[in-house]
Amino acid sequence: MRFLSKKDVPFKEVVPDGYIDIHSHLLPGIDDGVKTIYQSGYILEQFENFGFKKVITTPHIMQDIWPNSSQTITSNLKKLKDVLVPLGITKIELRASAEYMMDDLFYERIKNNDILPLHQNYILVEMSTFAPPINLNEILFEIKLAGYIPILAHPERYSFYHDDLKKYDELKASGFLFQVNLLSISGYYGEQIKSFAKKMIDQGYIDFTGTDVHNYHQLEVLEKGFEFKIAKKITSLMKNNIEFS
């Protein structure tokens, strides 16, 4: 008798037609993601093989750590796109936005409208995994004032909220949408986050998905796939990303 493995459905079989990934770190050398153009090209080639239609890659913007500007991101994107065709990567569409840490730098940029949206008026934001921003309400006010809709990256990883789901209800009510990391459901960040990610999916908190791939190792983990009993739910959620086409 064969026992079902924990990751019984390969990732490629879970990906819906025309999937659009909205969270990754594939611009080389500007954050903790890939280091070279060729690493970027390899991962994008695999994404193409998985059936992805589009990748909107999202380098970190963090004050004092990765204070990337809209210009550094767009110029880096152009360099990467220039090599994709010679590398034979022609089916996948590549765009760039950012994953904005909700810090003082972001607060200034949102007020100055120096923002690269994901698509239309959506922006991808994150908070520290140690604590939420003290001025979260002020930041949200500025986001709304500027006409953007914030998508909170990987809410399942903010362990300071895990004991109180009402905090997630409050975030939703205040205007945040939620994007789960597919790596979280694979168990990459540990069993606790995996379990909480599945709980958030089951209870209807999650709006969108993202790979959040930074490197080859994460790609390999993702490629193995997911437990059979949750695979269909993941495919269904991934279809929501058609919003970004």
Rank of each mutant, 00 (worst) to 15 (best):
K239E: 15
H162C: 02
F196W: 10
S184W: 07
Y168F: 15
Y168W: 08
D169G: 05
F226V: 00
P155W: 03
T211D: 04
G225P: 09
N181A: 07
K198Y: 03
I185G: 02
K167Y: 06
Y189M: 08
D207L: 04
A173V: 01
Y189W: 14
A153T: 04
A131K: 13
Y161A: 03
N241Q: 04
E138M: 12
E138K: 14
D164V: 00
I151C: 09
K229P: 00
D207E: 09
H162V: 00
Y188P: 01
I149C: 06
F208T: 01
E170D: 12
I151F: 10
D169H: 15
I149E: 14
K144M: 05
D212A: 05
K199N: 10
H214C: 03
K172F: 01
S236L: 09
F196A: 03
G187L: 10
N181P: 06
A197S: 15
L237F: 01
K233C: 00
S186V: 04
S159L: 12
K199W: 02
I206R: 00
Y205L: 06
P150E: 06
P133D: 12
F160M: 13
I143F: 08
F141Q: 02
I149R: 14
Y168M: 08
L177E: 11
L171C: 02
A231D: 10
N240T: 05
V180T: 14
Y161F: 15
K166R: 15
E191Y: 11
A231V: 11
Y205K: 10
P155C: 04
L152H: 10
V213M: 08
M238W: 06
V213F: 06
V213A: 06
V221H: 01
Y161I: 03
T235E: 13
K172W: 01
K239I: 05
V180C: 13
H214I: 07
H162S: 12
K232C: 01
S184E: 10
I242L: 12
N241Y: 00
F208M: 07
E220K: 13
L237W: 01
N181Q: 12
M200Y: 02
Y148M: 09
E223D: 15
I193P: 03
G147K: 09
S174E: 12
I242A: 13
N135T: 08
S159R: 14
L222G: 02
G147T: 06
